[in-house]
Amino acid sequence: MTTTGGPAGRDAGPAPVLSVSGVQVTFGGLHALDGVDLEVHAGRVTGLIGPNGAGKTTLFNVICGLQPATQGRVLLDGRDITRLAPYRRVRAGIGRTFQRIEVFGSLSVRDNVLLAAETRQQWSPDPVDPRRVTDGVLDRVGLAAVADAPVASLSTGTTRLVEVARALAGVPRLLLLDEPSSGLDDAESAPFAGLLRSLAHDDGLAVLIVEHDMPLVMGVCEWIFVLDLGRLIAQGPPAAIQDDARVRDAYLGTRA
């Protein structure tokens, strides 16, 4: 069974970390997003899928403040962050990676992550040692071996991991990952899925992931939202999504 239109993800008990309601984004006359509602809960990996141009990255941009919404609200832990500047949303607990990679090419892997840890030290009340945080994150993500390499010398897949590590150094409550596995080979993909599960289950993060790698999405996500042409067309657990006729139509292009 999949549900649409109703309260999103209602099977999870506690209040959602992220709650997006009625978000609309209009470019000229085009609705990039049209009344999207979505909730993301702590402790699980949530998927956001849809064909190219469905509005997935635009929704990410709305959530982290890079794209102003024409209408609608974004709540983080119940707090309305719709009008906050991007960096303030990060301080409120959002971490994010990009489909088009946004790393600091002139810095080493370690400095990319250290920068985030140091910046957090400025605004967070938690007493932390940025270098310890950095070492911990690099270990966790599996970048310790290349820590001192310049980012520009890495493969695309590894560079994406640097972005993940940088986001984690900010100790977010909500982690937004935009196609994190593209560029990873099969041998790297499995540990990455393990990392995502561990972040959700062990650390209690709310993880929202945009991904085209269907085996990864179906294997790791516990709840999936499907966007098509700016509208949410389905949501539910992976098994239900796989069987959903509307989702198949959207992907195969056989809509009426």
Partner: peptide
């Protein structure tokens, strides 16, 4: 990357 900077807070 100005965007990347904003994403560290």
């Amino acid at each position: 990357s100005p965007v990347g900077c904003a994403m560290t807070g």
